[in-house]
Amino acid sequence: MKVLDLCCAHGHGFEGWFASEDDFQAQLSGGLLECPLCADRLISRRPSAPRLNLSGAREPAAAGTTAAAPPAPAAGAAAAAAGHQPPAALQALWLQAVKHVLDSTVDVGERFPEEVRRIHYGETEHRGIRGQATPEQRAELADEGIEVMALPMPAGLKGPVQ
Rank of each mutant, 00 (worst) to 15 (best):
C35Y: 03
A19W: 07
R111G: 05
A89C: 04
Q132E: 15
F24C: 02
L4V: 08
A81Y: 01
A19M: 12
A69I: 06
L102K: 14
M1T: 13
P47G: 09
V116C: 04
L4D: 00
R45Y: 06
H10Y: 07
A19F: 13
L95V: 10
V116G: 04
V106I: 13
A49D: 04
Q25P: 02
E115K: 02
A69H: 05
V106R: 13
R41V: 05
S55H: 10
S29N: 07
D23Y: 02
E114N: 03
P73A: 09
L90G: 14
G16L: 08
A79R: 15
L33V: 06
E15V: 03
A92G: 11
E114A: 15
A49C: 01
C38A: 09
A133Y: 03
G76I: 06
G76Q: 12
M1Y: 08
A79Q: 11
D23P: 01
E34P: 05
P73S: 09
P60A: 15
T105L: 01
R46L: 13
L52S: 02
E114L: 07
V116I: 15
L6E: 00
E125T: 15
K99P: 05
D23A: 15
K2I: 14
P73L: 09
I129Y: 07
R130K: 10
P71Q: 02
G122V: 02
L4R: 00
F14V: 03
T65A: 12
E115P: 01
G131T: 12
V106Q: 14
H84E: 13
V98P: 05
A72C: 13
E123A: 15
Q96W: 14
K2Y: 14
H120P: 04
Q27M: 12
P87K: 04
A61D: 14
E136G: 14
S104N: 12
L52M: 05
A19Q: 13
L102C: 10
E125G: 10
E110R: 07
Q91Y: 12
Q132N: 11
